[in-house]
Design a protein around this nucleic acid. Structure first.
Length: 272
DNA sequence: CGAACCACCTGACGGC
DNA sequence: TGCCGTCAGGTGGTTC
């Protein structure tokens, strides 16, 4: 489900209500394969005070006192919502009860996502954090361009590769390629520095705009308060195959790249 | 290194 | 109404 903007919106929302709260209880409602076993997770977080909430790539990180942490990956359908205590619902996976009686609930219909707990100092050793590439909103567009200029793979596949650039998924890959006028099957090493830099500048724009609009809600995404985003109303290409291009009127086409549906304008996106 | 698979899961939707 | 195939904001593994 969520890509960088959605996870960023969740992190900011959680930061506003969660910092200072103490984890007073953990309810592992359904830990089959998606959370680590309750007997190892609970001791690492119980009694911890939330000192901050942040995002790295598509992972949501809740920092606790003494250097402990929780990490959530929402994959396609995960949610992390903080609100008043309520009864267990169908897709609840792991529930954290806080000292003010409120509920931090991790739910995931498809059960692809996970929550992991880290004891003091353990987060720094998590191999995920060492594998993932640069943050697109904290890195110069020309530097990001350097990540693809020597790669022979399809630019769409490179954008989706978390080691190339962190946090980009199917929606924002397609939207930024449209804005840059680049065909999703273009080879990274055929773009040239100027066009590649332009692509990443557009990527930065579209990510910032999506964050400002509270993310994109297609089916499942909600922010930390349970509210939908609005950026789905601004999609130029994602999910619009067969509809006219807003720029030129040409019927939008779609193809598969890296196993993912890629929608593009055959007229506006010829650069390859 | 890159591409094409499959796998993990559940649910919604369209066709027959 | 119901069964079946297809598709979905993601990643990780295998094989060629």
């Amino acid at each position: 489900m969520p890509e960088l903007p959605e996870v960023e919106v969740i992190a900011r929302g959680l930061g506003a209500t969660l910092v200072g709260r103490v984890v007073s209880d953990v309810e592992p409602v359904d830990s089959t394969r998606l959370s680590e076993a309750a007997d190892t997770l609970v001791p690492k977080v119980l009694g911890g005070v939330v000192v901050g909430v942040r995002r790295r790539a598509k992972v949501l990180l809740v920092d606790l006192s003494d250097g402990a942490a929780l990490a959530f990956h929402l994959k396609m359908t995960g949610r992390v919502v903080h609100g008043p205590m309520r009864p267990v619902e169908r897709h609840d996976r792991t529930r954290f009860i806080l000292d003010d009686g409120s509920l931090l609930c991790f739910a995931d219909m498809r059960r692809f996502g996970y929550v992991r707990a880290f004891g003091p100092g353990e987060l720094a050793h998590w191999d995920f954090l060492h594998r993932v590439g640069p943050e697109p909103l904290e890195t110069d567009a020309a530097m990001l361009a350097g990540q693809v200029l020597t790669r022979a793979g399809r630019i769409k596949a490179l954008l989706l590769d978390q080691a190339v650039v962190a946090g980009v998924g199917n929606i924002y890959a397609d939207e930024s390629l449209f804005r840059a006028g680049i065909h999703p099957q273009a080879r990274g090493n055929r773009l040239g520095p100027a066009l590649a830099e332009r692509l990443f500048a557009h990527l930065q724009d579209v990510l910032r705009q999506a964050i400002a609009e509270n993310g994109s809600s297609i089916r499942d995404y909600v922010n930390a308060s349970g509210d939908a985003g609005a950026f789905q109303n601004s999609f130029a290409v994602y999910g619009r195959q067969g509809l006219p291009c807003a720029a030129c009127g040409t019927t939008l086409a779609s193809t598969k790249v890296a196993g993912r549906t890629s929608t593009f304008c055959p007229r506006c996106q010829q650069r390859r």
